[in-house]
Design a protein around this nucleic acid. Structure first.
Length: 951
RNA sequence: GCCAGAGUGGCGGAAUUGGCAGACGCGCGGGAUUCAAAAUCCCGUGCCCGCAAGGGCGUGUGGGUUCGACUCCCACCUCUGGUACCA
């Protein structure tokens, strides 16, 4: 008995591929190239998740198919291995994080190899490899050496930065400081999440609702010197160049929303007395609108400069630099108290309290459009980090300003008349109020100007254009663009990350002077130092501060320096790994230009949708800098992107119970505003309870408890999680069913991009398909491996030939479209047909084996060998089909009467409309139905259908 | 709230362009084989009425366009993901 035994044949073929280097990619592509990339995994201690092989199998099929079509394929794999879990493990066990990281990588590598993916393992890399992060540091230095030329819209070497004369005269230190301000990698104070109880700084994702994820300790926001990357300089290009890539529209939209480009104007409001206004106005007319606002004005950004006449007050953020100067003596106490309170609140808390709080500063500013003085308030609904951190409030035409004005009795002046047929939006009506029987609400749309002096009667768009021109002429404003995108906070107070290749200059007393020195590129890498202990430092400082002095300090040319002790975030390594895969062992460059130009861009990039914004935006940013500086040949790194869907746990029945464990029907459970499930009658939260399948019975509109037919339960699948206990382990699936079955099942579940639940029965199903494939070709009752006697070297019958060619056509088309589920269904049909055939032509069997090979490569290689071949099938030509054999000579078509199916008709495939109609009329059933009725119309679509419209 | 995407049998899903709804698989029912079981093979399987022939109803809900709608249009409901005062 020679049964299909994946445990035996899978390791056999994996060893074959490895020893013969079957999937080694050439340095340079020969002929048509295809670069297919998987989002490389973070090697967690839990090992591979069944979600990983979903995308990996899809790309593997694409690659194996492409090789059989004669393309040069680059298909690498590596590990995104810096990260928090390894550092936490290091702290707990006081062992270097590299140890656990390497152990985890070994597990991942074993599991990936066990699944038979056709990676070129010679190119494997981990972001934690010193050879790799040496070049990450090199790229950081390139960012450090680059400034963004806004006129040319590209990054240029810092040497080429024009130095203003007034700075040049101040000497070299001033020039260096000026340069440092313009670099793409620069330093700034930014708020960090400092957790005193844990004695460490936390990443944003480690803070939940203002408490630490671990231990739920309070977290404070502290300003700390941080490295930033000037991604905002590239905002325009990051947005517009999305047009050129073949990505899901939803991902492009998410990136555009994240970048959040808006256009409007910056306007200066004079801060002096009315008496001084004339002089200021005259001066501005002379000098024009200055680059920096100066102390005598409050600069605002607005997208609606057409509403300038409706500005009745101004608001600045609590962190605004002018706040102290603006605050009048009498208001000092309230303003101070307000700012203290605002600072204590986390961003989230600020949002949760929806009321618009704020206090008057005591100061006023003069509106340049009409010379009127309006009060300046401070309120935390204005963000310091957007625009200029100050706004002109137009309560009549901005919902937030309206709410604030209503709460603080500030005046509201209408300056835009809505179109006559305008219906207020939901949000607008929600804010309506009635006064003396008149109801008013804000209007945030566009319309016609009123109460706006000489601009009255202008449409919003025209007003906008005109007023921007007028503001520019008077030197009080100019058109401006703003982005929601912020500069990228690039440092972490962590050990397990890439060290920055930067020295800080120290003065005689050992204090930093603020001057920086880049590590020479020939001194890279800056490796991580060994530490005595990995526990948090207990101060809001990085753990690298604990390194030995010989790592921390140096002296160059008599000048003493201390190392930068922050490390880079996990995103850094994943920003450019796709380039290193092209030339992973190069010691002279991060990638050889000829190889880069030959392989780039990545033709297909597959991974989870969770990276839709950050990873993909950061990588595109780095790539554009490398492009500007001439190191890569394409403006975009990833030509085509596909997101694989999430794999959920097995389907479960979920019931709901109240606090006393009484059942509540799912029909009366809703999510409240906080996304908690509550009983709609009592408004009390309910508990989710998993219900055994046995206790559930199906009724017409859903599932109900067998014992309590009034209680409906939900039937759904949940995310896999350790706590829910529904995690599927790929090792076990391979042990029980084999890698080919796992691969095949992951592809058979449904469309690649869909979210879908796991089913172990489904795995069993595809395994029995592979068993059937095996028995179709193998004599399983024989003692030794031999071909099934039904497999014979005979030409196929016409019918067999049609099945074969139709299958090749369908599978080819489906693989091209990445519709792997239907491709597998077509192969199942082929096997269902041929297992019933007493004679199975070996040529047809070979076609099926080749079609199956990308999906289930181990069994395919084994059967290929059995069919008498002594070479791998990895480079065998993909089966071709003949159009002539993909259609049947006669077909069955439906006959409808008034659009309802009445009967079917077997006709020649090329029957004309006339022939169809006559054949249909001759059909007994049809004749009976149309006999005494008037036939109004007959629709005959050759090859499709016939429809009689009768009265 | 806003922006995407989705809703088809008991379950996963299929349906080139508006043209036979439910391919393929799971599950379930029946049968063959077997001392028996596993495995395998064969038949059936959307729901309702009917012994059957046959008929009616069916792609989240309500409406519309069309000879004909899972597919196109309008409104709504539910779910999933993203986002959150960005002036």
């Amino acid at each position: 008995m020679v049964r299909y035994n994946p445990a035996e044949i899978e390791p056999k073929w994996q060893a074959y591929w490895e020893t013969r280097e079957t999937f080694r990619a050439p340095d340079l592509p020969e002929g048509e190239k295809l670069y297919v990339l998987d989002m490389f995994p973070y090697p967690s201690g839990d090992g591979l998740h069944v979600g990983h092989p979903e995308g990996y199998t899809a790309t593997d099929i694409v690659c194996r198919y492409a090789r059989m079509q004669g393309k040069s394929v680059l298909h690498p794999m590596g590990f995104d291995a810096f990260g928090l879990p390894a550092e936490e493990h290091a702290i707990k066990t006081n062992t270097p994080p590299r140890e656990s990281t390497e152990k985890n990588i070994a597990t991942f590598r074993r599991q990936l190899k066990m699944l038979g993916f056709s990676y070129d393992w010679e190119r494997e890399l981990a972001t934690t490899d010193v050879d790799y992060f040496s070049w990450t540091q090199w790229i950081f230095l390139l960012l450090f050496d680059t400034w963004f030329d806004a006129d040319q819209q590209r990054g240029r070497p810092i040497d080429e930065l024009p130095i203003p004369a007034e700075i040049a005269v101040e000497g070299s230190a001033a020039v260096r400081r000026y340069q440092d301000q313009q670099r793409l990698a620069f330093q700034a104070d930014a708020l960090v999440n400092w957790c005193p109880a844990l004695g460490t700084v936390l990443a944003n994702e480690e803070v939940i609702d203002g408490l630490s994820e671990r231990g739920a300790h309070p977290v404070q926001r502290l300003p700390l010197r941080q490295w930033m990357l000037r991604i905002t300089a590239y905002a325009d290009r990051l947005e517009s160049e999305l047009d050129a890539v073949d990505w899901p529209e939803s991902v492009k939209t998410m990136q555009r929303d994240w970048i959040g480009r808006s256009t409007g104007a910056e306007v200066d409001f004079f801060l002096g007395d009315q008496d001084a206004l004339a002089a200021w106005t005259a001066a501005r007319r002379e000098t024009g609108f200055p680059q920096a606002p100066g102390d005598d004005v409050l600069r605002v950004y607005t997208t609606r400069p057409d509403t300038l006449y409706g500005a009745t007050y101004m608001v600045i953020a609590p962190e605004h630099p002018l706040l102290d100067r603006l605050t009048s003596e009498s208001q000092q106490a309230v303003v101070h108290a307000y700012c203290q309170q605002a600072a204590a609140k986390s961003d989230r808390e600020r949002l949760e309290l929806k009321e618009k709080t704020g206090v008057f500063t005591g100061a006023q500013a003069i509106n340049p459009i009409n010379g009127e003085a309006i009060p300046i308030w401070v309120a935390d609904y204005v963000l310091s980090s957007y625009g200029t951190g100050a706004i002109m409030a137009v309560p009549a035409h901005d919902l937030r300003d309206w709410e604030f004005a209503r709460a603080h009795q500030l005046s509201i002046l209408k300056v835009v008349e809505p179109p006559s047929d305008y219906q207020p939006t939901k949000d607008e009506t929600a804010l309506a109020f009635s006064d003396h029987g008149v109801t008013t609400c804000p209007f945030a749309g566009t319309g016609t100007a009123i109460n706006s002096g000489s601009y009255d009667g202008l449409a919003t768009a025209d007003f906008r254009a005109r007023v921007i021109e007028d503001l520019a002429n008077s030197g009080t404003g100019q058109g401006a663009v703003n982005y929601k995108l912020r500069d990228w906070l690039f440092s972490r107070q962590r050990f397990w990350g890439e060290p920055f290749p930067i020295w800080h200059e120290l003065d005689a007393a050992g204090h930093p002077t603020g001057m920086l020195r880049a590590v020479d590129t020939d001194e890279l890498p800056v490796d991580l130092p060994p530490l005595e202990d990995y526990s948090p430092p207990g101060r809001p400082e990085p753990p690298l501060g604990k390194a030995a002095d010989d790592w921390l300090y140096t002296v160059v040319d008599g000048q003493r320096y201390v190392r930068e002790t922050n490390t880079m975030p996990q995103w850094a390594g994943s920003c450019w790994y796709y380039l290193r895969f092209i030339d992973p062992r190069n010691t002279a460059a991060f990638v050889d230009s000829a190889k880069e130009a030959a392989w780039m861009p990545v033709d297909l990039y597959v991974g989870g949708a969770e990276h839709a914004v950050l990873h993909l935006l950061y990588a595109r940013f780095w790539h554009k800098v490398l492009y500007d500086r001439g190191y890569v040949s394409t403006p975009e790194p990833f030509q085509r992107l596909v997101n694989q869907g999430m794999i959920l746990g097995e389907l479960e029945f979920t019931g709901y119970q109240d606090a006393d464990h009484g059942w509540i029907s799912a029909t009366q459970v809703r999510r409240n505003a906080e996304r908690q499930r509550v009983d709609t009658q009592s408004n009390q939260p309910v508990q989710e309870v998993s219900v055994d399948e046995e206790l559930v019975v199906k009724q017409k509109d859903g599932f109900y408890l067998r014992d309590q037919p009034a209680i409906r339960v939900d039937s759904r699948a949940h995310k896999m999680s350790k706590s829910r206990g529904n995690v599927v382990n790929p090792d076990e699936v391979v042990r029980d069913f084999g890698a080919d079955s796992l691969r095949l099942y992951e592809m058979f579940m449904g469309p690649l991009e869909a979210t879908k639940p796991w089913s172990m029965q489904g795995v069993k199903g595809v395994r029995s398909f592979l068993d059937r494939v095996w028995r179709m070709l193998v004599e399983d009752r024989a003692e030794t491996l031999q071909l099934n006697t039904a497999v014979q070297d005979v030409p196929p019958t016409d019918e067999q030939k049609r099945i074969e060619h139709k299958t090749i056509q369908a599978v080819t088309r489906d693989v091209e479209n990445m519709d792997f589920n239907t491709a597998i269904a077509r192969m199942m049909e082929f096997v269902n047909y041929f297992t019933k055939e007493p004679q199975r032509p070996s040529s047809s069997m070979e076609s099926l084996v080749l079609l199956l090979a990308p999906f289930a490569p181990h069994i395919a290689e084994e059967l290929w060998e059995l069919l008498g071949h002594d070479q791998t099938l990895a480079y065998e030509p993909w089966p071709s089909y003949d159009e002539e054999w993909t259609s049947d000579p006669s077909i069955e078509i439906p006959v409808q009467i008034n659009g309802k199916l009445r009967t079917r008709l077997t006709v020649a495939a090329d029957a004309t409309a006339n022939e169809l109609e006559n054949a249909a009329r001759a059909e007994e059933k049809v004749a009976a139905q149309i006999a005494d009725r008037e036939v109004v119309k007959v629709i005959c679509i050759p090859g499709r259908m016939v429809n009689f419209v009768i009265r």
